[in-house]
C-alpha cells in the first residue's frame, strides 16, 4: 500500500486503471462495508428523518415507541447507479505551483471512484462537459465498461470558452434511469443560480448529489504579487491589478464564494467536499467515503 498518494506522482502514471486500483486499495482498507447504500430490502441502519425522505421508509413502529421519526436504510443488494459529471472547462486546466492541473486531479479521483463502484457491481457513467456536453457514457456495470470509462476519462482535456454546468447537471439527472448518485467534479466557476437550481432539481428527482469542489492552493490564497495583468482562462478577459492590493478583496470574495457553496450544499443535503490539488488523493477520497460509510448521507 502506498502510504500517501501524491497526486503529482499518480498523475504521471499513464494507466488510469492502475492508478484507480492503487488509490482505492489504499483508501478503503479498514472500510469493511460498502460506503454506498442502495435501496434494497436488506435493512442496514436507521438515521434521523430528513425532509424529502420517502415516507415509506419511515419506521412507524419505532416512531410509536420513541416518538422520534427515523428512516430505515438498506444495504445495497441492488446495483447503485452513479454518474460522474466532470467539468472540463478551460479553468480546470489551471495548474498551481505543484504542477498538477485541476482536471488531472479530478481524473484521478473520478477513476478511483469509478473503479470502486465498478468493483462493487454498481453502475457507473460519465458526463464530460465544458460549454456543452462533450462526452456521455451511460451508467452500466461490468469491468469492460469501467475500463472504457477510464479510457474516456483519460482523454478528457480542459478546453472551451465557458462552462455549462447547469445544463450538464440537467442532462445527467435525466439520463440516470432511476434514482442514483451524481458525482460532480468542478471548480464551480459558473452561473451559481442556474447551478443551484439544477442541483435542487436533481435532488427532487431523488438523486443523491456529491460535489467535489476542486481548487488549487493559488486560487484560495491568490499569491500573485506585483503589477499583474490577469487573464481569465475561459473568457479571455483581462484585469490589470496589483497583487498585494488585490489580495485582501479577492480573499474576501473568494471566502464568500466558498462559504456560499458550503452552506448551500449543507442545506440541500449535498455531500460537499472541497479539495485542493495538493491534498493526497487517499485523504480526499477517504473523507468522502468515511462520511458515506458513517451514514451521514442518504
Amino acid at each position: 500500500m502506498i502510504a500517501t498518494l501524491d497526486p503529482l506522482v499518480l498523475s504521471a502514471i499513464a494507466d488510469l486503471e492502475l492508478v484507480a486500483r492503487v488509490t482505492v486499495d489504499g483508501t478503503i482498507a479498514g472500510l469493511h462495508r460498502s460506503p454506498f447504500h442502495g435501496y434494497s430490502a436488506e435493512f442496514s441502519q436507521y438515521r434521523p428523518y430528513r425532509a424529502g425522505d420517502d415516507l415509506k421508509y419511515v419506521d412507524w413502529k419505532l416512531f410509536a415507541r420513541t416518538d422520534r421519526v427515523y428512516t430505515k436504510q438498506f444495504r445495497e443488494t441492488t446495483n447503485l447507479l452513479a454518474l460522474v459529471a466532470l467539468d472540463a472547462s478551460a479553468s480546470m486546466g489551471y495548474a498551481g505551483t505543484n504542477g498538477i492541473a485541476k482536471i488531472d486531479y479530478c481524473r484521478l479521483l473520478a477513476a478511483a471512484l469509478s473503479h470502486l463502484l465498478g468493483a462493487q457491481g454498481d453502475g457507473i457513467g460519465l458526463v464530460v462537459f465544458d460549454s456543452a456536453i462533450r462526452q456521455f457514457i451511460a451508467s452500466r456495470t461490468g469491468r469492460s465498461h469501467v475500463r472504457s470509462l477510464l479510457v474516456a476519462l483519460s482523454r478528457a482535456e480542459a478546453s472551451g470558452r465557458g462552462t455549462a454546468t447547469a445544463s450538464a447537471l440537467k442532462r445527467a439527472s435525466e439520463l440516470l434511469k432511476r434514482r442514483g448518485l451524481i458525482i460532480l467534479f468542478s471548480d464551480l466557476y459558473d452561473e451559481e443560480t442556474a447551478m443551484e437550481a439544477e442541483l435542487r432539481r436533481a435532488l427532487r428527482m431523488g438523486h443523491e448529489v456529491a460535489l467535489f469542489h476542486i481548487l488549487t492552493p493559488e486560487e484560495v490564497t491568490f499569491g500573485l504579487t506585483g503589477d499583474v495583468e490577469v487573464e481569465d482562462l475561459e473568457s479571455g478577459e483581462r484585469v490589470l491589478t496589483r497583487g498585494a492590493d488585490a489580495r485582501a478583496a479577492y480573499g474576501e470574495r473568494f471566502s464568500a464564494f466558498l462559504e456560499g457553496w458550503r452552506t448551500r450544499c449543507a442545506s440541500y443535503g449535498i455531500d460537499y467536499t472541497r479539495v485542493l490539488t495538493d491534498t493526497p488523493l487517499d485523504e480526499a477520497l477517504r473523507g468522502f467515503l468515511l462520511r458515506r460509510a458513517a451514514g451521514l448521507l442518504r
Binding site: S91, M92, Y94, K102, D187, Y189, T216, E219, F222, L224, G226, D227, V228, E229, V230, E231, D232, L233, E234, S235, E237, R238, V239, T241, A246, A249, Y250, R253, F254, F257
Partner: peptide, 11 residues
C-alpha cells in the same frame, strides 16, 4: 506581467 488564471470574477 501577464498571468493566466482560472477566473477574474473575484478581482
Amino acid at each position: 506581467v501577464r498571468v493566466r488564471f482560472p477566473t477574474v470574477r473575484f478581482l
